[in-house]
Design a protein around this nucleic acid. Structure first.
Lengths: 209, 209
DNA sequence: ACGTGTGAATTAGTTCACAGCT
DNA sequence: AGCTGTGAACTAATTCACACGT
């Protein structure tokens, strides 16, 4: 009942639950039912209950879930009841926007360094950082024990940089390059490519205009 | 056999096929089998064949798929055999990075205008644009017949801005705000939230360190 | 009366395996 | 010999529906 083998699709929904619960908490709510949460997320209430039940019994019959308690449980389950330090590789427009995004710190992720291989960018200030030469990335990662990397380099460089990250100790990569990485099975990878989403939506758009 | 009712999960994979095929084309490849493509995407070959077979018979037995032909077919199916104009609402760090992202134009999407409600940003140049007051967004959308919007505003404003977009005629929204939008069923929405991906990966990270 | 937790039923998605064509 | 297209088999995910507790 604790955790035997949790489907990845379930893990993928937990951050959405957490995000919504935190939002409700800022609005002063203290209790919520699966039906109410489901409505906000456009999901089925049974799915939320079943997902949560894989990790324990967090609700009270006849009442619902106590929001602060459920937030604490989800943060524990997702290992975000701590702060994770991350590196960013690629100091282009995207890398700069990432460094200035306040959402990371609020949610337990903290950018610790940013790298590039372009001499024109190395040494320049971005946010609270100085861009470092990517050649120092592996030793920095090793010495600090960093585990999470954000890949914001061009597609052509993505696979090689990812491999360097992994051999230095990175175990989770958020990849903004428009490509599929091939890495060892013990490395987590998630992708963000706006083109993929836009083309997905375009399928459903009328060809009018 | 043409298209009866295509599962959304299949539509979601087509952009990945297209992206990979375009990459192969730049490398000079002209033919590819489902097995080879599957390897690049870490998918099952039968899945690729079945996905494609929902839209027609594009391969040749004993040979595989002709890359330029399959690209053309996928672009037609996804309605990206044309250029879609898009608006961006929100001229913060993210909005600026989006405006300067060259990937949109390469793939048939073109930013046509950027809006904000902050007097400090309105009138300022970003890339090839001048930031316009968001109050003009609805009439611009209507007069140009724009259908796609990118939402790059804070979470607190997202729902209200999305509703304004929709009532002006926007039918597809790429939402970077960390929230779930509630909109009419005929409006497509896709979400990009790096925190969700990071928390998803953190689940699998060892709690060491 | 309300809402959880969960087996059972249902629906959806994936993979197998092979006929048939090049 | 090689590879597609696809019905059949299999696996996974979702939703139902209700016993049980507040």
């Amino acid at each position: 009942m604790t955790d035997k083998q949790v489907p990845d699709v379930v893990v993928g929904r937990l951050p959405l639950y957490l995000r919504t619960l935190k939002q409700l908490q800022t609005e002063g709510r203290r209790v919520i039912s699966s039906a109410q949460l489901a409505k906000l997320l456009h999901l089925n209430p049974a799915q939320i209950r079943k997902d949560l039940s894989m990790f324990g019994e967090f609700g009270r019959q006849g009442v619902g879930y106590t929001i602060p308690d459920l937030i604490a449980q989800l943060e524990r389950i997702l290992h975000v009841d701590r702060t994770w330090e991350m590196i960013v590789v690629g100091a282009g427009a995207l890398g700069q926007a990432l460094v200035n995004y306040p959402g990371f710190e609020i949610n337990g992720f903290r950018i610790a360094a940013i790298y590039d291989n372009d001499p024109a960018k190395i040494g320049k200030p971005i946010g609270r950082f100085i861009v470092r030469d990517v050649q120092y990335m592996p030793e920095d990662v090793r010495s600090h024990g960093w585990r999470i990397g954000i890949l914001a380099v061009p597609e052509a460089a993505a696979q090689a940089v990812a491999e360097q990250m992994v051999s230095a100790g990175i175990r989770a990569i958020l990849c903004y390059a428009p490509t599929v990485l091939t890495l060892p099975g013990n490395v987590q990878v998630q992708y963000i490519d706006p083109i993929v989403h836009l083309q997905h939506m375009a399928f459903y758009l009328e060809e009018t205009d």
